[in-house]
Amino acid sequence: MTPGPARDDGRDPSGTASEEPLTKEDFEALARFRSAIRRYLRFSEETVRQHDVTPQQYQLLLALKGFPGREWATVRELAERLQLRHHSVVELVTRAQGQDLVARAPDPDDRRAVRVTLTARGDALLGRLAALHRDELRRMDAALTLPAWHESA
């Protein structure tokens, strides 16, 4: 098996843990951090559903608006960003298009590709939802701070 691409975060690309054992405080910090992530995700899921979209649709809208350097993305690019299979993104875009959240247009540079953009309705909804998410992240700031690792004795 050939190794995958090198990571840019300094971790071992094989995914093996370091030899350094974790302390009780490390486990407590990991548990607190994981619990905070789950609380945030639950907040997000409940919030977007109250606005009649699924969490996946919110992620789609956010991926489009947050795409670097332009206001559209191809289905292939969205699949990569959302870590979904191409056909799953096609279905997700179709459902979002049915709710007038996104629109499709042929890519003038590549006839095989389709550009996906936000509609005015999708952009407005995303603005409201993203502001709610930002405010929740501000409230959770301390809980979502990365744990400080303790040195083992």
Rank of each mutant, 00 (worst) to 15 (best):
G98M: 01
V102A: 06
G98V: 02
D107N: 15
L101W: 09
V102C: 06
Q83A: 13
L92F: 06
R81P: 10
D100L: 06
H86F: 15
D107V: 04
A96M: 00
R95A: 09
Q97D: 13
Q99D: 13
R95C: 01
E77G: 14
S88M: 09
E91L: 12
A105C: 04
L92A: 04
A103Q: 14
L84H: 10
A79E: 03
R85G: 13
L78E: 05
T94V: 08
H86G: 11
H86P: 00
E80R: 15
V90M: 07
L92R: 07
P106D: 07
L101I: 05
D100P: 02
L78W: 11
D100V: 10
T94M: 09
L82R: 01
R104P: 00
P106S: 06
R85H: 13
L84M: 15
R85L: 08
E91A: 13
D107W: 03
V90N: 04
E77K: 14
L101A: 10
E77V: 07
R81S: 14
R104D: 00
S88I: 01
A79L: 10
E80Y: 14
L84C: 05
A103H: 10
Q97N: 11
L82S: 06
A105R: 10
L78I: 09
P106A: 09
Q83R: 14
E91H: 12
L78S: 08
L84Y: 13
Q83L: 13
V93W: 04
L82F: 08
E80C: 09
L92S: 03
R104S: 07
A105Q: 12
R95T: 12
S88P: 01
L82N: 01
V93L: 02
Q99I: 02
E91M: 13
P106E: 04
V93S: 01
R81H: 13
Q97R: 15
D107L: 03
S88F: 09
L101D: 09
V93F: 07
L101N: 04
L92W: 04
A105H: 03
V90S: 03
H87R: 11
Q83C: 10
L92D: 09
L101T: 06
Q99K: 14
L78G: 09
E91V: 11
E80D: 15
A96W: 01
L78Y: 06
A79R: 05
L78M: 08
D100C: 02
V90F: 00
V93H: 00
P106C: 02
A96E: 06
L78Q: 07
E80H: 15
Q83H: 13
V93C: 00
A96Y: 02
L101R: 05
D107A: 05
L82A: 09
V102K: 00
D107Q: 01
E80M: 12
Q99M: 11
L82K: 03
R85N: 13
V102D: 01
R85Q: 14
D107C: 12
E91W: 11
H87A: 08
V93A: 00
D100M: 08
R95Q: 11
L82D: 00
L101H: 06
L84T: 06
D100Q: 10
Q97K: 15
D107E: 00
A96G: 03
